[in-house]
């Protein structure tokens, strides 16, 4: 049920974003992208925790905020230092998203069984 709510929120958010686009300056687009990646990772992590009965709202919300912020800051810091630090965030969040999706899939398959 949480997954349904999440998908609904995502779809409604996309529709709202298409109808009333949020202006993102081009120079910040890389950091916003990293923040969005971190946000999606947090959502998948939250769903996984909910399905495994280990969900904590505080952890979920703080994880979303801090991870997004840290990812963006990491990208900015990398740009200032001339290092592609944002790649680290992309790799970490990307692999975690795959892991979370895999866990969610397994839990759902077990529940079906």
């Amino acid at each position: 049920m949480v997954g349904f709510v999440t998908v609904c929120g995502l779809v409604l958010g996309i529709i709202a974003g298409v109808l009333h686009p949020v202006h993102i300056p081009a120079i910040y687009s890389k950091y916003v992208g990293l923040a969005l990646l971190a946000g999606m990772d947090s959502i998948l992590g939250g769903i996984k925790g909910y399905l495994k009965d280990s969900f904590d709202a505080t952890v979920f919300f703080s994880g979303f905020l801090i991870n997004s912020l840290i990812a963006a800051l990491l990208g900015y810091l990398g740009d200032q230092l001339g290092i592609d630090l944002y790649l680290a965030a992309v790799v970490v969040f990307g692999s975690r998203m795959f892991q979370n999706i895999a866990v969610i899939r397994r839990v759902l398959l077990k529940k079906e069984a």
Binding site: C8, A16, G17, A35, I47
Partner: peptide, 20 residues
Amino acid sequence: STALMFFAISFLVGLFLPGQ
């Protein structure tokens, strides 16, 4: 409250996706 939180965060992420 959990569903509301999921909805709010996913809505926020979805809101920024088209602009990005």
